[in-house]
Amino acid sequence: MKQRIKEFLKNNLCLRLSDEKTKITHAADKNVVFLGYIIRKGYGNHNRFKCDPFDPTLRIYMNVEGILKKLRENGMCIANDYPVGIARLLREPPEEIIRYGNQVLRGLLTQQRGCYNFFKGGHIQYIVQFSIAKTLARKFDISLKKIFARYGKSLSVNYENAKGYTRSISLALYKSFSRQKSFFATVKSAITSFHLPSYSLVNPLTRACYICGNPHLHVSMYHRQTKKKLIKPYPPIVTVMLTINRRQIPLCNHCFANIETNRFHLNQLSR
């Protein structure tokens, strides 16, 4: 069974299975922790429903304890999951504090929307929301109540960006923690329809010259700058490279020298 799984991961998902870290266990008796998820057969003994030994369904659960551990390590809550302010962010502007909260929310909950216990994500969001609010309260030395009165429940902050435009940012709070039943099915369909890109193993320095087409001479790659760094009027070779959307082309030594001395006209290169 382990060998079959190894072949499936390699051939279908392009993943490598580690023999040292992989074990075969019974999902109805023990939780299987994989990529931040908990995979379990049936409801198990961790749910309010009685365990059904004849339930063959594999269910994916959110690893709540693992997420809470990450929040404690990030300084967003203490041992009893009580949210606290983040001391290292006190010198940051309010918009950066809000942006950090969004990064944490998306990183912890976005990929959990298909889990059977996604309803527990409300507790995770509560910790992040109040941790960011307490960080702002400590920064401005005001009460938590005044923070929510000033910025609202979603902690919406107006600021001016580097270009002088007024922007607004707020916490991307989830309105519902109902499980999205089609979430993992959508991910699976995206994987099965994915095709690996084909790579060319041919050394570009062995290609034919782009101008004269002579395949028997040694070629070198001619590079151009990015378009925003180019100065108009463009040289003929740069105009051609922009037309074919190339940053580099192979040229033989003779054509390379002619390009460097600007001996080619645009009509010659276009042909």
Rank of each mutant, 00 (worst) to 15 (best):
K229H: 10
A185E: 15
K21I: 09
H26S: 10
L144G: 01
M221N: 09
I127G: 04
F194C: 13
K227T: 09
Y151R: 01
Y159V: 06
E95F: 09
E7N: 13
H216I: 11
Y151E: 01
G121F: 01
L251A: 05
M62T: 13
L9M: 13
Y210F: 15
G36C: 09
K120C: 11
F34C: 12
S170T: 07
F256K: 15
K10I: 05
Y126S: 06
T166Q: 14
Q268P: 05
S143V: 04
A149K: 14
H254M: 11
N80H: 04
E20C: 10
L171T: 02
N203D: 14
K120W: 08
G213A: 14
Y199C: 06
P215D: 02
A87V: 12
K23S: 09
F264D: 05
Y174H: 12
R167I: 08
L71W: 02
H216D: 15
Y199V: 14
L68A: 12
V238G: 05
P83W: 02
E96Q: 14
C115R: 01
N158V: 14
R113V: 07
F264I: 04
R99H: 08
F34H: 09
Y126P: 00
L251G: 02
L201N: 13
I124G: 02
G75C: 03
N47D: 12
R4T: 07
K227P: 01
A28K: 11
K23C: 07
R59Q: 03
L196P: 07
I78D: 15
N158Q: 14
R59N: 04
Q103D: 13
I67R: 07
Q248C: 12
I142A: 11
P250I: 02
Y234R: 06
